[in-house]
Write a protein that binds this DNA or RNA. Structure first.
Lengths: 97, 97
DNA sequence: TCAAATTACGGTCGACGTAAGGATC
DNA sequence: GATCCTTACGTCGACCGTAATTTGA
């Protein structure tokens, strides 16, 4: 599992369309197909239902969508977090191991 | 930024030692050095202070450590989360395969 | 001298893109 | 026939490991 895979998954889930998601991600469909499939295999469950009209999110996929967006948002905010307050004034000891 | 990098960072931060972290991760030091450096360059700030005795976590690194552990934990729990309750708020048949 | 991190270099694995192939309306 | 998604195949970049270098107690 990688952050890239999660980004891909979010795009496909939100677009409900593999080709549209590929456009949004600036990649082509084949890698996207493969990554989604890899993710499904790694999790051992189907995340989408393939229909002639596109990709429909299944219940496990819906849960993953929320989780993936949360994780990606957290990762995206890391730079701001680190720049925020390097030394909060309090004794921030790193002795928690 | 990748989850792999975050795992590497956590190991180095907790061990305060690049070689010990490498052992824990079952890799060798050079890739670890490079990944930590890549992470620092990507974030545009130094996370560790290099000393002859090892790697000492700087304040930004300490904040990243907490965040990285949180993210990795969230990712690690994804499988259980997806298996927990397939349809939150929806009453569907569970035998959809 | 010893231990720690870093740099150099070659090999391997994974991801992408183009092209071709079913399936459904 | 058109539009999806998928499979096949070749190429390129990233990561890892071994070996050699550098720095400091």
């Amino acid at each position: 599992m990688s952050l890239c895979q999660l980004s891909y998954f979010v795009a496909v889930a939100e677009e409900a369309h593999l080709s549209r998601a590929a456009l949004r991600l600036n990649i082509s469909q084949p890698p996207l197909t493969r990554q989604i499939r890899n993710l499904e295999e790694e999790l051992g469950m189907q995340l989408f239902e393939r229909t002639p009209l596109g990709m429909r999110l299944l219940p496990p996929g819906a849960k993953l969508l929320a989780e993936a967006k949360s994780i990606l948002s957290q990762v995206k905010n890391i730079p701001q977090l680190l720049r925020a307050s390097p030394a909060p004034g309090l004794a921030l000891d790193a002795d928690n191991l």
